[in-house]
Simulated assay, not measured.
Amino acid sequence: MSAAARWAAFGCVLVPVVLVVYGASAGGVFWVAAVLAAVTGLCRLLLRRSERGAAGVDGPAGGHPA
Rank of each mutant, 00 (worst) to 15 (best):
Met1Pro: 07
Ser2Leu: 03
Ser2Gln: 05
Ala3Ile: 09
Ala3Asn: 13
Ala4Ile: 13
Ala5Gly: 03
Ala5Cys: 06
Ala5Gln: 09
Arg6Gln: 06
Arg6Gly: 02
Arg6Lys: 09
Ala9Arg: 02
Ala9Thr: 05
Ala9Pro: 01
Ala9Ser: 05
Phe10Arg: 02
Cys12Ile: 04
Cys12Asp: 04
Val15Pro: 01
Pro16Asp: 00
Val20Asp: 02
Val20Gln: 01
Val21Gly: 02
Val21Gln: 03
Tyr22Lys: 07
Tyr22Arg: 07
Gly23Asn: 06
Gly23Cys: 05
Gly23Ile: 04
Ser25Trp: 05
Ser25Tyr: 03
Ala26Glu: 09
Gly27Ser: 08
Gly28Ile: 05
Gly28Gln: 07
Gly28Cys: 04
Gly28His: 08
Val29Lys: 02
Val29Ser: 02
Val29Gln: 02
Phe30Lys: 07
Phe30Pro: 00
Trp31His: 12
Val32Arg: 00
Ala33Ile: 03
Ala34Arg: 12
Val35Thr: 11
Val35Leu: 06
Leu36Gln: 06
Leu36His: 04
Leu36Ser: 06
Leu36Pro: 01
Ala37Met: 04
Ala38Asn: 08
Val39Thr: 11
Val39Ile: 12
Val39Gln: 06
Thr40Arg: 01
Gly41Cys: 07
Leu42Thr: 15
Cys43Leu: 15
Cys43Gly: 13
Leu45Thr: 14
Leu45Val: 14
Leu46Ala: 11
Leu46Thr: 08
Arg48Tyr: 07
Arg48Glu: 09
Arg49Gly: 06
Ser50Thr: 13
Ser50Glu: 14
Arg52Thr: 14
Gly53Glu: 14
Ala54Trp: 10
Ala55Pro: 04
Ala55Tyr: 08
Gly56Ser: 15
Val57Pro: 01
Gly59Lys: 06
Gly59Tyr: 10
Gly59Ala: 07
Pro60Val: 15
Pro60Ala: 14
Pro60His: 13
Ala61Tyr: 14
Ala61Gln: 14
Gly62Glu: 08
Gly63Gln: 14
Gly63Asp: 15
Gly63Tyr: 14
His64Ile: 15
His64Gly: 09
His64Met: 14
Pro65Cys: 08
Ala66Gln: 11
